[in-house]
């Protein structure tokens, strides 16, 4: 299994919110996130963005 760069890892972390990743993609992403604090923060921030943007317009401007 290929080791991902941080750019590839963040790209997959983004795509995982938009499509079902293949098995190899999931495994290599999980492996990368387990050892890379920067990318795992970014992956969490992507999920947070989704929550925040959903709430846009539901509250008073």
């Amino acid at each position: 299994m290929k080791l991902l760069s941080c750019k590839e890892a963040t790209s997959l972390a983004s795509q995982r919110l938009d499509r079902r990743l293949g098995l190899l993609e999931r495994l290599s992403l999980r492996l990368h996130l387990a050892v890379c604090d920067g990318c795992s923060r970014v992956a969490k921030q992507f999920a947070f963005l989704r929550t925040a943007v959903k709430q846009l317009g539901e509250r008073d401007a």
Partner: peptide, 17 residues
């Protein structure tokens, strides 16, 4: 294309964060 779409979404998320 779907690939273009995923690229745009990735860029948007990276730029917003």
């Amino acid at each position: 294309t779907s690939t273009h779409c995923w690229v745009l979404l990735y860029r948007a998320r990276m730029a917003l964060r």
